[in-house]
Amino acid sequence: MRSITKTPTLPRRAVLAGAGGLMLSAALPTFAFGLTEGAAISFINTVMTDVHVIINSGKSEAQMLADFDGFFSKHAEVPLIAKTALGAPGRAASSSQLSAYIRAFQGYISRKYGRQFRDFIGAELNVISSRDLGAKGVLVTSKVDLPTRPDYDMDWWVIEINGRPKMFDLVIEGISMVSTERTEIGAMLESFGGDIDKMTARLNVT
């Protein structure tokens, strides 16, 4: 995976699938086949196009972060990511506590990771390979080529929700966003003595 000289192992379907491929797969009803590697790759290409539209828009930082909020709700399965980061303590929460937490989490990750997406200015994303994880979705491995800094590996964990591909995790040089946020939310919850409401209030201003 790490060697740059290695030949990319793109599935043939991925080569054929462009924007048209995505529209076709979105138009077809989903059968038990689940998410294909080709559909996951064209989804990632769409996601990157949207990232570039936002960062090259010339808007102010506040406007861009608002755009990233919309970007995350459109492309990422935020409620599931939020609940995974919270883990078992979330099972005891009431539904109103949980939805307030999920809203706060959405704003928090949009600000935190939206800021990091600015690094993508002038960047080029090259899909290296993909791997079918069965019921767990598809893992797309890519390399981000930056004009001024060393390139880095970025993996996209894509799952299928109601027949549509959605981001579940972003893994940069092996470091997973879900694992990072599970650590962060766990520590934050502990610092508030397990009080989800207080933690939600903190997330809203972080």
């Binding site: 609940k83 995974t84 893992l139 964990w157 579940f168 893994v171 040089e173 092996g174 694992s179």
Partner: peptide, 28 residues
């Protein structure tokens, strides 16, 4: 967690699908 995951990535630790967490484990 950042050190351990980055080290495992750099050392080309093999990805075992069974060991990946279930993304729907907390779909409560």
């Amino acid at each position: 967690i950042a050190y351990l995951q980055n080290m495992r990535h750099n050392l080309d630790t093999e990805l075992v699908i069974e060991d990946l967490e279930d993304p729907f484990a907390f779909d409560y």
